[in-house]
Simulated assay, not measured.
Amino acid sequence: MKVKNLKIGSGKPKIAVPITGSTTDEILKQLNLILKQNDFDLIEWRIDFWKQFNDVNEFNYVAQMISEKLEAIPLLITFRSFNEGGQTKLTEEQYAKVIHNIINCRVADLIDIELMHPKKLILPLIHLAQNQNIKVIQSYHNFKITPEKSEMLEKLDQMQLNHVDIAKIAVMPHTSDDILNLLEVSNSFHHESNLPLISMSMGNLGKITRVSGQLFGSCITFGTVGNSSAPGQINCEILNQFLNTLN
Rank of each mutant, 00 (worst) to 15 (best):
I234F: 05
Q94F: 03
C105H: 00
L28V: 02
N57T: 14
Q241M: 07
Y95G: 01
N247V: 07
D165L: 08
K120Y: 14
K97P: 01
A170S: 04
I103Y: 01
V98C: 05
I238P: 00
H163E: 11
L28K: 09
V98Y: 12
K2P: 03
T175W: 13
S176E: 15
N54D: 13
N204P: 04
T91I: 00
A96I: 03
S218H: 04
L125P: 05
N38R: 05
Q37E: 15
T88G: 06
N83G: 12
N104K: 14
Q158H: 05
L156R: 14
N194Y: 10
E114K: 13
Q30R: 02
E192L: 15
Q94R: 03
V225W: 01
T221N: 10
I34T: 05
K4C: 02
E58K: 14
L28A: 08
V136E: 03
Q94S: 12
V17H: 02
P118A: 02
S228W: 11
M172N: 02
L31A: 01
H174Y: 13
L75E: 09
I8T: 04
E114N: 13
L33G: 01
N235C: 07
T146C: 13
N131F: 00
N101A: 10
T24C: 02
G203A: 14
L110N: 08
L128Y: 15
G86F: 00
E151L: 06
S10L: 14
L123H: 06
A167I: 09
S22K: 15
T209P: 09
E26R: 07
L125T: 07
P18K: 03
N5Y: 08
K155R: 10
F222K: 01
I238T: 15
Q214R: 15
N204T: 12
N227A: 13
I103L: 09
S212Y: 13
I166P: 09
P173D: 08
G9H: 05
P18N: 04
K7H: 05
L180I: 09
D177L: 15
C105P: 00
N142Q: 08
A96T: 01
R80Y: 02
K89C: 11
G217Y: 12
C105K: 02
